[in-house]
């Protein structure tokens, strides 16, 4: 097999950068919205400090819809929404919208699951010491379950990388687009292999960073 390093050298860095751009921004939105959403899901659940059957039921329903749709369908279904937010449905920036919408409910459930592991006694102790809800959430709930939340975020980011490749094939750009347009459409196997290697490296790095961070933060 011929290795066309010139083409790879021209296309791969741009595609990698686009993928990192999509996944990076989507990760930021996933944390900014998914973390509070996970906390609210936990706080409003039965026996929680803000126990509310209706709020919890509605949020849970919406989150489950987000989680039950295969990403490729979700992405197509929300194209009008994406156009509304970004002005276009093409390109890496536009892909951030469906990526975030897909990852937020996923991450929120993982956050909720991590919070459930916290012993109720710790929350009681925080209340007795006079903590406000805000202090309970930041200093007790989120801090105590941070290792689990980081592990959940790692899983979510890796899912985002996988979603981003799908988004790429229908106009998002990035490594997924490169693999399809060159590797599949033009039979450039060398480009294909190079893409695969870069994705594997990115996923491995994310997993390693996530593991190290979670371990560092965990003192149990």
């Amino acid at each position: 097999m011929e290795w066309d390093w010139k083409t790879i050298g021209k296309l791969l860095p741009t595609a990698t950068e686009q993928t990192l751009h999509m996944v990076g921004l989507a990760t930021v939105f996933t944390v900014l919205i998914g973390l509070p959403l996970g906390v609210v899901l936990y706080m409003t659940s039965r026996g929680g400090l803000w126990a509310n059957r209706y709020v919890n039921g509605i949020l849970g329903f919406v989150v489950n819809i987000g989680r039950s749709l295969p990403f490729i369908i979700l992405m197509i279904a929300i194209i009008p929404f994406t156009r509304l937010v970004v002005g276009t449905s093409l390109g890496p920036s536009a892909a951030v919208v469906p990526l975030s919408v897909g990852a937020i409910p996923f991450f929120a459930r993982l956050v909720e699951t991590s919070l459930r592991e916290i012993d109720r006694g710790k929350i009681d102790a925080a209340i007795v010491m006079g903590s406000s809800y805000r202090q309970i959430i930041t200093k007790v709930l989120v801090r105590e379950s941070l290792p689990g939340i980081i592990a959940g975020l790692t899983t979510s980011v890796i899912a985002l990388i996988s979603y981003s490749a799908m988004a790429g094939t229908i106009g998002g750009g990035g490594l997924g687009f490169l693999a399809k347009s060159r590797g599949y459409d033009r039979f450039q196997t060398d480009v294909m292999i190079a893409t695969v290697v870069v994705i594997i490296i990115i996923v491995q790095l994310v997993q390693i960073i996530g593991d190290v961070l979670a371990r560092k933060l965990n003192h149990r």
Partner: peptide, 20 residues
């Protein structure tokens, strides 16, 4: 919340924050 500072509580399972 202020009045609570008048009472300190000790628990059977201590309930310390494990990451502190």
């Amino acid at each position: 919340r202020r009045a609570r500072h008048r009472i300190g509580m000790v628990f059977q399972h201590v309930n310390l924050l494990e990451n502190r």
